[in-house]
Amino acid sequence: MTELILHHYPTSPFAEKTRLMLGYKKLKWKSVIIPMISPKPDLLALTGGYRKTPVLQIGADIYCDTALIADVLEHLQPDPSIYPEPSKGMGRTLAHWADNLLFWTAMAYSMQPKGVAQIFGNAPPEAAKAFGEDRRAMSLGMPRLRSTDATAAYKSYLRRISDMLDDWPFLLGEVPCIADFSVYHSLWFTRTRTSVLAGIFDATPAVLAWMDRMAAIGHAQFEKFNAADAIAVAATATPAPLRDDVFQDDHGIALGSRVTVSGESFGPEPTEGELIAATRMHYTLRRTDERAGVVHVHFPRIGYQLKAVAPA
């Protein structure tokens, strides 16, 4: 199997989700640390525009969004599964809720003034300002929860999560599933990055015990790698042959068309390329970069917009 290269930074919640999935599947990987905010020229050489964290690289194949990365890891290493039966559908549905509504609630709670002060306490004043401006640009037009409203919602969500742990060690059974990894990462951020606000967990000790079980999974074996070498890997590799999946045309856009793919809400920066796959689960674009060469950039369908590029 070609080496797994994860482009991430240590404090990213979604990167923590991916690191734990790699740990659960005991997959070796290489770690490329990317900036928290733009510019990210090395990452964009691979993705063509997408700049959210993390990104998984396998040779000249670039996988965006943890929902798709989870499917890729499951294909590479089916055992142990993160989609165990009979709760596979429930796990995916709960994971989608966690990666969206729960995540933004946890962030609104964690990024109140006390949390921001802890995160950026040892950084120059302009660091917090730059981070805030960067995230505002990525979430332009998104509704924002006030920290007071987020606090109330977060408490309710934690009680509901605690109720799910009454009979099982994990959210949907005896073993972790995709729901556990997706619910965990937002709570991990509050507990580790804004520990001054972690008292919100005191009322739900079962959640804390579950978080300890999740943390114990670890990140498997990895080694440091640099961005230039990762780009060189892509440049010397050939994208993997596409699987013979059925073309699902929901847009009236033919394969071979010039298109863009962008996030529906957070992270609206488009990636442009040739549409070479549109299956029931994902899109694939072929693009060429002067540094990375020919790459295939993959996106999940859910949460992303596909648009045809108007002829020049």
Rank of each mutant, 00 (worst) to 15 (best):
Q57L: 09
L4W: 10
D42P: 06
K114A: 15
T236W: 06
C177T: 11
E290T: 13
G23H: 07
Q77S: 14
A235E: 06
D289E: 01
A152S: 10
D61Q: 03
M36H: 13
Y24H: 11
R243Q: 12
A234G: 00
N122A: 15
P239V: 09
E3C: 06
Y154W: 13
S186N: 12
S110Q: 04
F201A: 02
V196G: 03
T18P: 01
P80M: 07
A277N: 01
S38N: 15
K28M: 12
E126Q: 13
A277Q: 09
Y9P: 14
E264F: 03
A127V: 14
L197F: 05
A60I: 08
G59W: 08
A240V: 06
D65W: 11
L165H: 01
T260M: 10
G263V: 12
W29A: 04
Q221G: 07
V294M: 08
S87N: 05
L187E: 03
G293K: 06
F181I: 02
M214R: 03
R136F: 14
P35H: 15
V55R: 11
L165D: 02
W210K: 06
G89P: 00
T66M: 04
G256A: 09
P169D: 05
V72C: 05
S139A: 15
S195F: 06
S31V: 09
P270M: 04
V309C: 14
Y9W: 15
Q248P: 00
K155T: 12
I253S: 01
Y83V: 07
W104L: 15
T18K: 08
L171K: 01
L172D: 06
I161H: 01
D244Y: 00
G59K: 07
E133D: 11
G267S: 10
F120Y: 13
I161A: 01
R136L: 15
A153M: 13
A128D: 05
M281W: 09
D167Q: 07
A312R: 11
D99Q: 10
Y50S: 10
M281D: 15
S12I: 14
G173T: 03
Q57N: 05
A15W: 02
S162H: 05
F14S: 08
W29N: 06
Y109C: 10
D65A: 05
I34T: 12
H298C: 02
K25M: 04
G121L: 11
L76V: 04
G263S: 13
G263D: 12
S182N: 09
A230E: 12
I200M: 07
L94D: 03
E274R: 10
S139C: 13
A206I: 00
D163W: 00
T93P: 00
E269I: 14
T284Q: 05
L165R: 01
L20D: 11
A312H: 12
Q118G: 07
A292W: 09
L6I: 15
F120L: 08
P241Q: 00
H185G: 08
L101Q: 08
A215F: 06
N226Q: 13
G252Q: 04
W29E: 10
Y24W: 13
I69E: 05
D202W: 00
M142G: 07
D71S: 08
P169L: 03
D245Y: 09
E85A: 11
I200S: 08
L27Y: 01
D71K: 08
W97C: 11
S156L: 13
D134S: 15
F266T: 14
I200W: 01
I37M: 14
A206T: 02
G49Q: 04
R280C: 04
A128R: 04
L285H: 02
L165K: 00
P241A: 00
P205W: 05
